Computed example of a mutant assay.
Amino acid sequence: MSTPLEVEPGSSAAAPEAVLEGVRKIEGRSLWQISWMRLKRDKVAIAGGIIVVFLILVAIFAPLICKLVGVTPNDFHQDLVDPSLQTSIGKWNGISWDHPFGIEPVNGRDIFARIVYGARISLLIAFLATLLSVVIGTVMGIIAGYFGGWVDTLISRLMDIFLAFPLVLFALALVGAIPDRILGLTGDALRVALIVFIIGFFSWPYIGRIIRGQTLSLREREFVDAARSLGARRPYILFTELLPNLIAPILVYATLLIPTNVLFEAALSYLGVGVRPPTASWGDMLSTAANWYQVEPLFLVPPGLAIFVTVLAFNLFGDGLRDALDPRSR
């Protein structure tokens, strides 16, 4: 048996604590910190995120922006419209310092103000519809994936029914059958609530299928078995053990679902079942511009470009967020 090594008092050998004093400590990083580092390296996703934040700020501060520019969305400027041709008097759709994007034909309403106010309607409906579909899809997906059996079969067939539903035709029929007042809601509030319900309630199966697949994998993990062995009840396992591990796919799919809802709201407004005039909406502006494109072709550009930039920004940010949270998907 070897004898322990003895250090003489005058020896140069240092204690372990003294050796570690000059070593830099390496701090651990959480999964969210690692994901943020990956996201910061994706310049395209960051650019999309900046545009998304800008659009949200524009929608929130629309009245202030229009007040600073000196324009309003619903005021008519008949003095700027040629009464014989029903078009703007000036060139380039009446673009001027007072009207940066020009004016609408026939009535002379300012296009810039209507684009800014239209952002409020499009983003409000898209965010609320996405929230509704995410909540319903997450709950149904977790229940179907965790319980399995006849519960999974029932919810899966329900998803198939909703996915096969003719949503546009249903929206057209429902808007025509709904009275002007329901549960104290009238006017634009009723239309917004109706569109949010149609989009959100009938689009939850898309995220429900994703959450169900993730839950089928997570329910076999060790931390779920440990929770069961400790006597945890099913609601605790579903919403305390499983749900936090589903935040990443929920967040990613929500950012990719928002631009789809923006397009759907614009399509409903284009067909005349969105918010009622004179409330500004990008889809309604496109519908009006389609009737005047031969004499005022530039009228199509602002609402079309607003929809294009919004959808592109959300898609770029959503793709970057997906790559950051799940690098194996690249």
Rank of each mutant, 00 (worst) to 15 (best):
V301C: 03
R157C: 10
S11F: 02
I178W: 02
P259Y: 12
L298A: 09
G318K: 09
L271Y: 02
W32T: 13
A62C: 12
N291W: 05
L271V: 05
V175R: 11
N74V: 13
L131D: 04
T255I: 04
A119S: 13
F127V: 13
A177F: 11
L218Y: 08
K91G: 06
T3A: 12
I89P: 02
P303C: 05
V151A: 14
A144V: 08
A324C: 05
T215N: 03
G108V: 04
R328Q: 06
I195Q: 03
I50M: 10
P9A: 15
A266E: 05
Q86G: 04
S269M: 03
L131C: 09
P327S: 15
F239N: 09
A173L: 14
P297E: 03
L312Y: 10
I198V: 10
T240Q: 12
Q78L: 09
I26Y: 05
A144T: 09
L123P: 01
W92K: 06
D79Y: 06
G231F: 07
S30A: 12
L154S: 15
V135G: 03
I182K: 07
L194T: 15
L251S: 10
A45G: 14
Q33L: 14
H99A: 06
L128N: 00
F147D: 00
G208H: 04
L57P: 00
A173T: 10
L172R: 06
V151Y: 02
L158G: 14
K91D: 10
P297V: 01
F170L: 11
A14C: 06
W204P: 02
L325A: 08
A189H: 08
V58P: 01
G272N: 06
I125N: 04
I307T: 11
P105C: 01
A171I: 02
A14T: 13
M1C: 10
G70E: 06
P16E: 11
R212L: 14
G137R: 09
Y206P: 00
V134C: 11
R234N: 06
L163M: 14
M140P: 00
K43A: 14
V151C: 10
G274L: 08
G318F: 11
Y117R: 04
P244V: 07
G10Q: 12
Q294N: 09
G318D: 11
L190R: 09
H99P: 00
G272P: 04
A177L: 12
R24W: 02
L158T: 09
H99M: 11
G283N: 07
V44T: 07
I34M: 13
A173R: 01
L31T: 11
V134M: 13
G28I: 02
H77E: 03
G149E: 09
T215R: 05
V134A: 14
A14E: 14
A59R: 03
A177M: 12
G118C: 09
G200L: 08
P166G: 11
A324K: 05
R330W: 00
